[in-house]
């Protein structure tokens, strides 16, 4: 339909429900604080949310993730019994006894309790891992990209080095070394070198952003570097960063549960991976009657990652100029950069 409205594709760039992501970076100084706050809310909270919500995948993703938060709330408020051994008959099947709807394990532990009470820590871990990865990546990427020169080179060399270290084995060694029990710390350790690849692609985006007129204008006006980065550069990469936050979070889910499953991470806490491990080593592989013991934690894992991926996909569709350009008929060659990055999130 592109040609129906415009002959000139350039005029279509602001398409996408009219969100101008550049915000009001160079707006006049006379606006009051309140107006500015309202504008920030309007530009960076309300509009993106409306745009995101309009995509059915984002909506479904948000609902799923909301559901997990609800479960976490149930655990925190103590609305469901704590898991303990011999609290119920052994090997109850799914829905066999509605007191224990998800069945029980070989030791008579309520599976629902195991899943529910694992949720708050997992959510904490996922969030902290995602924040850590994207936070460092944004910092390194923007500073290196904007400052350039030797600062940029040094930061990028560090990223290259960090990228070269195999993630999972490194995490395993660190996990054994530090034996982290705190879910927040655990999230950080799991994504200890996830930021490097992301930082690299943010870096190359910033390289083009910094050539923009309004950035140059700020620079000639003598605005300080941190301020330019914060006001002019970061808003431009925010959509990309948001999408990648979701992917980083999914990586934490996959990796952490994998490592709990292997028994590399401490067993003391409840975690779906630990449940999976017990089921696996407790003989659930050998009989159909214990299949649910394997199945329940798997469904929990897959559910959360489906929620995250739907959210990421939906937001990607809304934000990603590559997908949007189909409508605008103009393309930017960020393809290589994007691919590199999605490639890395596929490790697990």
């Amino acid at each position: 339909m592109k040609r129906t409205e415009e002959d000139d594709p350039r005029t279509l760039v602001t398409d996408g429900a009219g969100v101008d992501w550049r915000g009001s970076s160079t707006s006049s100084v006379t606006v009051t604080r309140e107006e500015r706050l309202r504008e920030i809310y309007e530009e960076s909270v309300r509009k993106p949310f409306i745009v995101a919500w309009s995509d059915s995948r984002t909506r479904l993703g948000l609902l799923i993730i909301g559901f997990y938060f609800l479960i976490a709330l149930v655990a925190i408020l103590g609305l469901w019994r704590e898991p303990s051994t011999s609290q119920a008959p052994r090997y109850l099947m799914l829905f066999e006894n509605m007191n224990y709807p998800l069945g029980t394990t070989a030791s008579g532990t309520d599976l629902a309790a195991l899943i529910i009470h694992s949720t708050p820590d997992i959510l904490l871990m996922v969030t902290s891992g995602g924040l850590w990865a994207t936070g460092i990546a944004v910092f390194v990427g923007t500073v290196a990209g904007y400052k350039g020169g030797s600062v940029g080179r040094v930061l990028m060399s560090i990223s290259d080095f960090v990228m070269a270290i195999p993630g999972l084995p490194l995490v395993m060694i660190l996990a054994i070394t530090f034996n982290p029990k705190n879910p927040i710390l655990l999230g950080i350790i799991i994504n200890i070198n996830y930021w490097a690849g992301l930082g690299r692609s943010i870096h190359s985006q910033v390289l083009t952003i910094r050539e923009n007129n309004y950035v140059e204008a700020s620079r000639t006006m003598g605005v300080s570097t941190p301020r330019i980065i914060l006001k002019d550069v970061v808003p431009n990469i925010m959509p990309y960063v948001t999408v990648n936050f979701v992917f980083a979070a999914r990586y934490v889910v996959f990796a952490s549960i994998g490592l709990f499953f292997l028994g590399v991470l401490p067993y003391s806490d409840q975690n779906w991976g630990v449940t999976l491990n017990f089921a696996y080593s407790g003989g659930a592989l050998f009989s159909w009657s214990a299949a649910h013991w394997l199945l329940v934690p798997m469904v929990a894992i897959i559910g959360l990652s489906i929620g995250l991926i739907l959210l990421g996909q939906g937001m990607d569709r809304v934000f990603n100029p590559r997908v949007r350009t189909r409508l605008a008929g103009e393309s930017e060659s960020t393809a290589a950069v994007d691919e590199k990055d999605t490639g890395m999130t596929e490790v697990l």
Binding site: M1, K2, R3, T4, E5, E6, D7, D8, T11
Partner: peptide
């Protein structure tokens, strides 16, 4: 013509090359 006056459509018509789904 201005942008959006239909002049590209005119050009495309000469080759029966209107972009889908027009």
């Amino acid at each position: 013509g201005e942008s959006g006056s239909g002049k590209s459509m005119f050009a495309d018509s000469l080759l029966d090359a209107i972009p889908d789904p027009g």
